[in-house]
Design a protein around this nucleic acid. Sequence first.
DNA 1: GCAACTGTGACGTAGCGTAAGTGTGT
DNA 2: TACACACTTACGCTACGTCACAGTTG
Lengths: 258, 258
Amino acid sequence: MYRIGQFARVAGVSRKTLRFYDEIGLLRPAATDTHTRYRYYAPAQLSELATITALKELGMSLDEVKAIARRTSSRSNRRAMLGTVRARLERSLAQTSASLAAIDAAIARAEVADVALPVVVKRRPSVLVASLGEHVTGYDVMSAERELLGRVPVVSRGDLRGVLWHRCADEGTPLGEPFVELRSGRRADSKLDVTELPAVTAACAYSTDDYDAAEQAYVAIRTWMRDRRCALAGPKRELYRDGMLEIQFPIVVGDGNS
Amino acid sequence: MYRIGQFARVAGVSRKTLRFYDEIGLLRPAATDTHTRYRYYAPAQLSELATITALKELGMSLDEVKAIARRTSSRSNRRAMLGTVRARLERSLAQTSASLAAIDAAIARAEVADVALPVVVKRRPSVLVASLGEHVTGYDVMSAERELLGRVPVVSRGDLRGVLWHRCADEGTPLGEPFVELRSGRRADSKLDVTELPAVTAACAYSTDDYDAAEQAYVAIRTWMRDRRCALAGPKRELYRDGMLEIQFPIVVGDGNS
DNA sequence: GCAACTGTGACGTAGCGTAAGTGTGT
DNA sequence: TACACACTTACGCTACGTCACAGTTG
């Protein structure tokens, strides 16, 4: 029989680890002195501990190790558990390599060194909006917006206000459609188009409300999407927030089930 | 100005996250009502928060984000930090893909489904041992061992006892060298060879002390090493521990600096 | 007055590391 | 007696999630 220190040295783990495994019932010492409470381990427990360590290395949590190491766990249970762990590892691998690619891209163009124009992904819920129902060229967007606002009373408006870009400058004449959120239940002028902006996951960036800054934000999102081989999934959205601009590119996204 | 709930919705994070970032000084609200302690956020803070989120996505800790986002951090500092994070990501990637390969191998041969013969890696310190100084064939190992033990008094012996296998059965006649650990400071019979077993990192498995079980353990380690494309780095060691056998294959191992 | 919001604690997560203070073995 | 070893208890770490209870806003 080994006392805790020697067993720890021989097994290559820390004493604290052994006490912890005892505490959570994962590896109980073969004997415990009832008076001194010293833990005594049998040589055969080296292989028990090796099982625990090996399963932990495969990426299992101690709870999972406990479950799989029980005598009562069936072969099919164990196989299922391996599948679960495998799936988790794969997700983590994808995540890590995506981060690695992103950081390499950032290093390559020395971009994040200036912490410039961060892009973030957000899930946006669907929203009820009113618009004029027509797509106008870039130069007419501001007047169209004024007209729209003139037709929707302030009490009916929600917080969101902006432009949907159905076609961007890089594809020819830009075509935009100003919109305002409608407070739920409010009806608008019957000549207005009332539609539901669909829920999307979008890559977003922020800028001040001037042309050059916005252009930089657009470039940042495009670069971000190129780095991640990410496809556009709908018209871009430009939102006005009190002097700030938020630019959203809806993106295609896995549903997490694959 | 947004209150916490709206800011959280717009930014796509939780209220608790915002309170936490306030608490650790990572993102302080633009204003706080001194009476009610309500937090008020400015629209421009959306982009601050986006920076934080983006850096976090790259794999930085909040402490690192705090450091890199400070105005006082220089470009070279930031570049160095990116390098650090990149290195960490790479290690984690290697680790995860190794686990994935191991679990795939296990699934393929339905091995861990029976939680059979786990292999673990251990770092072993160097150890002072005595031996007869000659390599004997497999059949003579037991008698050589008896002779060795006869020449080393019990008081001089340490805990370790076993055989070094200089050549294994798969390479022809097995050649072994029994050894016993010497308690530090103790001198042995001058006709014995006293050497230092070098410190090694070894892949280890356990078995009971009989031929078939030991053979299975050998197979398990060889399979493990093949799965990991891992090379042998010295004579195999067989240790006797009170009826149990521990088999160690020294392996080549990166020094963690690459 | 009521619903929806906000605040501050306090406790939980995983897997141990690191003391602090006290008893045990040789 | 000295010294290594063992014990328990408690707090620390990351990045928040989840109550519970009380005050605030519209």
